[in-house]
Amino acid sequence: TTLHFDLDGKKLQYTGVSEEIARLVEELKRRGVDLKEIVRILEELLK
């Protein structure tokens, strides 16, 4: 799965993300978590 974000005018793309992580990101968005925080979490998970 590939995730795309537009953060402060920067286009971020994460490829090869598992379905689980993609679902987690969608859930965080639904809960109103700040996009910067979501990206920070995502980068930690993908290390």
Rank of each mutant, 00 (worst) to 15 (best):
V33R: 07
L12S: 04
T2P: 02
K29H: 12
E26I: 13
V33I: 12
S18T: 10
G9Y: 02
D34V: 10
K29W: 15
E44S: 13
L42G: 00
H4S: 10
G32H: 12
E20V: 06
E37D: 11
A22R: 09
L28W: 14
D6M: 07
I41F: 07
L7W: 05
L12N: 02
D8M: 04
K29L: 12
V39H: 04
E20M: 06
L42M: 06
K10A: 10
I21H: 12
I21P: 02
G9M: 02
E27V: 14
T1Q: 14
D8E: 10
E37C: 06
L12I: 12
V39L: 10
E37S: 09
L46T: 05
L3K: 00
R23D: 10
G16Q: 08
D34F: 11
E20P: 13
L7T: 02
V25C: 03
E27N: 11
R40Y: 13
E44D: 12
L7I: 15
G9N: 04
K36N: 12
R31F: 05
L28K: 04
E37T: 10
Q13S: 15
R30G: 13
V33T: 13
G9H: 03
L24N: 13
V25M: 06
F5A: 01
V17D: 01
L35Q: 08
T2I: 09
R31N: 10
L35I: 14
L45Y: 08
Q13N: 08
L45D: 04
K29C: 06
E26F: 15
R30W: 12
V33G: 05
E20N: 05
L24A: 14
R40A: 10
E43S: 06
A22I: 09
L3S: 00
E27T: 15
G16C: 05
L7Y: 07
T15W: 06
T1W: 10
H4D: 13
A22F: 13
K47T: 11
G16Y: 08
I38N: 00
D8F: 04
E37V: 09
Y14Q: 00
A22Y: 14
V17N: 01
D6C: 07
G16P: 02
I38E: 00
F5M: 04
L7H: 04
E37M: 10
Y14L: 03
L12P: 00
A22L: 11
R31Q: 12
K11Y: 10
E27H: 13
V17Y: 01
T2F: 04
L35P: 11
